[in-house]
Amino acid sequence: MPQPQQANVRNRLLRAMAPEDFARLQPHLETMAVQMREPMIAPDRPVEELFFVESGIVSITTGHDESRIEVGMVGREGLVGAAPVLLHADRTPHLHFVQVSGEVLSIGREPFCDAVEASAALRRLLLRYVHTVMIQAAQTAHAHAALGLEGRLARWLLMCHDRVDGDELTLTHEFLSMMLGVQRAGVTLTLQNLEGAGRIRAKRRRIEVLDREKLRALTNGSYGVPEAEYARLIEGR
């Protein structure tokens, strides 16, 4: 497969970086298809590969099995593994797994670190990205403490919608209940209410986003903060 070109990649970090920085990474990038539930980074193991997401969504979760809760969501705006590697932590206690199947560009830790060592501009861009990841986790903590389930679910649907093509999200209530750390019956009831208010259309294993502004109104300002930081710091908007 030919090496990806900067003009053709969908990952927003790769698109935002200087052409000479993209050129440092390019020879080491490998296109990979990833499937739902596939682990990308295992907890407490050295991170040997990083992944620029081209399509699909990767979830970062804390806890074990029954108590697992999502603390981060990475789509085409992001780089899976950025925080532990750029902050020289070598590993992370959090599981990173594929939530929506898609495509990633993988790169080995060593060539990635060599490129970052060689370019202050690249390091700056990627550290700014890590900042937005931290803001996203903080906003998630805020949402858990400050919002009812309606607001948290609305925020989650908006974040998911930002990262897929089209308006339809393929997910089960069971999966949503795991991500939000709540009983499935609570998710089912809340989806029914969101649907009644014309914000979404819920079908079996699928949710269609109908009205983003109405969803956003439920989030009480907890959606949009990391997104705005990303636009400001990474894309200069």
Partner: peptide
């Protein structure tokens, strides 16, 4: 078990 968890942990304006 599910009811207990909903009662204790879940805030839902609709309920």
């Amino acid at each position: 078990a599910v009811a207990r968890d909903l009662i204790v942990r879940t805030r839902l304006h609709a309920v």
